[in-house]
Amino acid sequence: MEQGTVKWFNAEKGSGFIERENGDDVFVHFSAIQGDGFKSLDEGQAVTFDVEEGQRGPQAANVQKA
């Protein structure tokens, strides 16, 4: 798993970007967020995640709040 920080997340659209510790920013969709309840992330929040190849390039998967 990688570690990173939420660069921004739009709760209305359900997507945003995570700033990786090593590498380019990666797209995140709300469906990749693990946990119960409303799936959203806050700017500056620390997260851990896997990276998968999506239709438009790398994207975060199995996102967990650190």
Rank of each mutant, 00 (worst) to 15 (best):
E2K: 09
S40V: 09
S40A: 08
G35M: 13
K7S: 03
I18K: 05
E2W: 15
W8G: 04
T5F: 13
V28N: 01
E52G: 08
N10V: 04
F9N: 00
G23S: 05
G44V: 01
F30Y: 11
V26K: 00
G23F: 05
W8P: 01
V51N: 02
G23R: 07
T48F: 13
S40I: 09
E2P: 05
S40T: 14
I18N: 01
A32Y: 04
Q3K: 15
E53F: 14
N10A: 07
S15D: 04
A60W: 01
N22L: 09
E53D: 11
G54S: 10
S40G: 07
V51M: 09
V63P: 01
V47N: 01
E43S: 14
F49Y: 06
I33D: 03
F27P: 03
M1Y: 10
G35P: 02
N10K: 05
V26M: 05
F27G: 00
I33E: 03
N62E: 01
I18S: 02
W8R: 05
E53N: 12
F9T: 00
R20K: 06
I18W: 03
I33H: 00
E21P: 12
F30G: 00
E52D: 07
A46L: 13
K65T: 10
T5M: 09
E43F: 12
G23M: 08
A66D: 09
G37H: 06
A66W: 11
I33G: 03
V6N: 02
E21G: 09
F9Q: 01
V47R: 03
D24L: 12
H29N: 03
V63R: 01
D25N: 09
E12C: 15
F30M: 05
G35K: 03
A46H: 14
F9D: 00
V28M: 05
N62W: 06
E43L: 12
R20C: 07
W8I: 05
S31Q: 06
E21H: 11
R20L: 05
A60E: 02
V6R: 01
Q34C: 13
Q34F: 10
G16Q: 01
G35Q: 09
E43T: 14
V47K: 01
R20A: 05
D24W: 09
A61N: 08
D42Q: 15
V51L: 11
L41I: 05
D25K: 09
E43H: 14
G37V: 06
Q59R: 11
R56G: 09
F49C: 02
L41A: 01
A61D: 02
Q3F: 15
D36F: 12
A32I: 03
F49E: 00
F17R: 04
N62K: 07
I18D: 01
F38T: 06
A11W: 11
G23N: 07
A32T: 04
V47P: 00
A61Y: 11
G44D: 04
Q3Y: 15
G44C: 10
I33Q: 02
Q59I: 11
D25G: 07
G4V: 01
G57L: 05
R20H: 04
V26D: 01
G57K: 04
W8H: 04
A60H: 01
G16R: 00
G23D: 08
E52N: 08
E21C: 14
G16M: 04
V47C: 05
L41S: 02
N10Q: 05
F27N: 00
D25F: 13
F49G: 02
E21Y: 10
Q34K: 11
F38M: 07
F49A: 01
I18M: 02
W8S: 06
V26P: 01
S40M: 09
E21K: 13
K65H: 09
Q45D: 13
V6L: 05
V47S: 02
F38I: 08
M1Q: 14
E43D: 09
G23K: 08
F38A: 06
Q34T: 11
Q64I: 11
G23P: 02
G16T: 02
Q45G: 05
Q59F: 13
V26I: 13
A66Q: 12
F27H: 03
N10W: 09
F17H: 01
V63D: 03
